[in-house]
Design a protein around this nucleic acid. Structure first.
Lengths: 310, 310
DNA sequence: CATTTTGCATAAGTCCGGCTAATGGTTACA
DNA sequence: TGTAACCATTAGCCGGACTTATGCAAAATG
């Protein structure tokens, strides 16, 4: 019943019926009057009943025409509204980000981006799982920011920022445990989900392997607290509950503010770095964001150099 | 936004999204798989966002695709439902008829038509005004039956039945007024709207002019009762209220049943006859009805010949 | 593991349907 | 009575949608 060509006629009919003039409809549709006239004639003979009453200078709708117009008009408006809504939705820049980085690093800086590009609406989603191509497409994610140790062959990654590890604790905790290296019953705070598929204790092990001998914790009997989020471990540290193996992106500001302190002077390169992936790097909004993000990263690196010397 | 070609694509999308298969959609749309594939590609690049996730053996809808499908599907269903409703409505045979003829002649016989053609729904509208071409088109009237004295140049008329006039009264009334010709204070019942634009007293005057001298009412002082409907005058006659100038179509059955009686033996040809007009005489339902109606008319004429001799 | 099947993408070419342009007819208006 | 406005109709062109054919990748099959 509803084949393709009838729909075009109905679209035409909608306009003609609203304006009650083929000429006016034609100009609104960027067609000639003749085209509209033919379309309507075809439509009518297809349906088998008249839609318009041709009165010399003026068109009228038949009862059937009125009924049809009500239906078609609302139906087309519905579709149009949906299309516009989707188009508007398409304008928001969707960023999927590793939760801890989103929470402690990106979110505080995002206000600056909003200030620079108020026309771009950003939707920031904190998500644990690393996104594959299909996931991004399915969720409409424009940009994925992850803390990854390795390359993803499927999707090229733009390195944003390297990372370093250092054990931190609150000043009060350090004051209460002056002989950290030999103390027993210390609490060791983990992020067990540093990156997707990370082995347990990954970052602590990394530290143990690379830190200079005089920076190691000696034969301590640790109490372990495991978190699935760096921010949680860090919150624990802030509450004087133990030593956290921190990443600079999480804690630089807290170190500067004196709310956390380094346990050792040494800093170790992390086995992963922050990377950005996008399905459409050519998109203007994506380009703008990447540009801004890289600036922020550079600035952060400079700041880190000044504070931590790495 | 909603131009003509996008609608065709959306129609295609609707099917493809429902079946989640381009191949199946193609066969349902009587197209090739290739056509559907191309349409969807075009649609997507037009909208600027993907609608389908092509997973090797299986299609999925993106969130945008889902939203769009909901909208498009209901919209198209709405249109389709309206179209079908209109098509069904188009199936009813609409007959506009002069009220008295409809009431006293056509309606009693219509059951026979229904019995013969149960598939055809008839809508009988009793309407005073004679219908012009435009009126019929506007109201969707298939057939107009009128009691007209003259030809209508605008629309060819099919003569159905000629008509005759005769004064009638109830047996009780006649018994109470044995000397009708000279009696005074009789009540004369008129139909003032015998046909569209009929002069007042038209049928009584017709009778006066044509009836033989020995059938005339002599110098009576009449009481006049005017009705705008022959059926009203006839109802008055049935209630013993006077003499009505009747048309055979109205009263033949009543005469046969003895509920009304002729006042004089004479019968006079009426200045008008029943005619049928149609905008689409080729329509099969119209043809069927005309055929049936003419048979009924012939049968009535025979019956009239037997009863009244005219 | 090789083979077949299934489903979508793509390229090239054809063909139909809708559009334009031009003209005519009718009405309304000045 | 002339003119403007509007719709109908015709002829002819053109673009876009469709088909055919082919490629490709994954899944089913044995």
């Amino acid at each position: 019943m509803l084949d393709a060509s009838i729909l075009a006629s109905l679209r035409c009919f909608d306009v003609a019926a609203r304006l009650l003039s083929f000429t006016a409809a034609a100009s609104q549709l960027h067609l000639t009057q003749s085209a509209v006239s033919q379309q309507m004639r075809q439509l009518e003979q297809r349906l088998g009943y008249p839609l318009f009453l041709r009165q010399h200078r003026r068109l009228q709708l038949t009862p059937q025409g009125q009924t049809l117009q009500r239906s078609v008009s609302t139906a087309l408006q519905d579709i149009d509204a949906t299309l516009q809504q989707l188009a508007a939705e398409e304008q928001v820049l969707q960023i999927s980000c590793a939760p801890s980085f989103a929470l402690d690093w990106l979110m505080p800086r995002l206000a600056d981006f909003q200030r620079q590009y108020p026309a771009i609406t950003v939707r920031l989603r904190a998500e644990f799982q690393r996104m594959r191509r299909l996931d991004m497409l399915a969720a409409g994610v424009d940009i994925s920011i992850r803390y990854d140790p390795d390359e993803d062959a499927e999707l090229p990654a733009l390195p944003l920022l390297d990372e370093f590890l250092l054990p931190v604790a609150s000043p009060a905790f350090l004051a209460a445990h002056p002989a950290l290296v030999s103390a027993s019953s210390l609490t060791r705070l983990h992020d067990t989900a540093a990156w997707d598929g990370a082995p347990a204790f990954a970052e602590w092990q990394c530290w143990q392997q690379q830190a200079p001998a005089d920076c190691q914790f000696q034969a301590s009997v640790w109490q372990e607290v495991e978190c699935n989020l760096a921010s949680l471990a860090q919150a624990a540290a802030l509450n004087h509950q133990g030593v956290a193996m921190a990443r600079t992106a999480q804690v630089l500001d807290l170190l500067e503010a004196g709310r956390l302190q380094r346990v050792f002077p040494a800093v170790v390169a992390a086995p992963a770095r922050y990377v950005l992936r996008s399905l459409r790097p050519e998109d203007s909004r994506v380009r703008l964001f990447c540009q801004w993000l890289q600036q922020q990263c550079q600035q952060f690196a400079r700041q880190r150099q000044a504070v931590l010397g790495c």
